[in-house]
Every structure is written in structure tokens, then in C-alpha cells.
Amino acid sequence: SDEEKKVRDQAKRLGVNTEQLLKWARRQGDEDLVRIVERLLRS
């Protein structure tokens, strides 16, 4: 999905993997991002 591509691009920009991005999203309190990243991790 578009959202998932955006998440992957953001992880690349930050230089982190998906698990690290999830931690980062939780720290930001970004519920939408957390949900998308969790979906990516499960897929």
C-alpha cells in the first residue's frame, strides 16, 4: 500500500530498520504510524 511504502521510505531516511522505526513511532506517540509499522512487521 501507499502507506507502507511511505513507512519504508521514512525508515530508510532515518537509517533504521522496521523494529527501530516502531520504537521511534511509539516515542513520537504517532498511533497511525505505529499501526502501519506493526502491520508491516506482521506481513
Rank of each mutant, 00 (worst) to 15 (best):
S43D: 10
E31D: 10
K12D: 04
L33H: 00
R35L: 05
E4A: 08
S1L: 08
N17R: 06
A11D: 03
D9K: 07
D2P: 11
K12S: 05
L41T: 01
D9I: 10
E31P: 11
K23D: 15
Q10A: 13
D2I: 09
R27N: 14
G29T: 11
E38M: 03
E38V: 04
L40N: 00
Q10P: 03
K12W: 03
L41P: 00
V7T: 04
A25S: 00
V16Y: 14
L33T: 01
L21I: 03
S1I: 10
K5P: 05
V7R: 07
D9R: 06
W24R: 06
T18N: 05
E4D: 05
I36W: 11
R26N: 03
K23M: 11
R42M: 11
D30F: 15
I36K: 04
K12R: 09
R26Y: 09
R27L: 15
E4N: 08
V7P: 04
Q20W: 13
L41K: 01
V16D: 02
Q20M: 09
R13W: 07
E4W: 13
Q20D: 11
E38T: 04
Q28L: 12
E3C: 15
I36F: 11
R39P: 00
V7Y: 04
R27T: 14
V16L: 14
D32L: 14
D2A: 09
R13Q: 04
D9F: 04
K23L: 13
R35W: 07
E31S: 13
E3L: 14
E31V: 11
D30M: 15
L21V: 01
S43A: 10
D2Y: 12
V7N: 06
R26T: 11
R35Q: 05
R26E: 15
S43W: 12
E19W: 08
Q28R: 04
E4Q: 09
R35E: 07
N17A: 09
K12Q: 05
L33A: 01
R8C: 14
D2L: 12
L14K: 04
V37P: 00
A11G: 05
G29H: 05
V7Q: 05
Q20I: 07
R26L: 09
L33D: 00
D2K: 11
R13V: 04
A25E: 01
R26K: 12
K6T: 06
R42H: 08
E19F: 05
E4F: 11
D32I: 14
V7G: 06
E4I: 13
R39Q: 12
D9L: 11
L33M: 02
L40K: 01
E31G: 04
E38S: 02
N17E: 03
E31F: 11
L40Y: 10
G29N: 05
R27Q: 15
L21M: 02
K5Q: 08
E38F: 01
L41F: 02
R13D: 02
I36G: 01
D32A: 12
Q28Y: 14
D30S: 07
K12G: 03
K5E: 06
E4S: 10
D32P: 02
E31Q: 10
K5I: 06
R8H: 06
Q28T: 12
L22Y: 02
G29L: 15
R42S: 11
R8F: 11
E38L: 09
R8W: 12
K23G: 05
Q20E: 13
S43P: 09
G15W: 08
W24H: 08
V16T: 03
A25C: 15
G15Q: 06
R42P: 01
L21T: 00
L40S: 01
E3H: 11
D2E: 11
R13Y: 03
R35V: 04
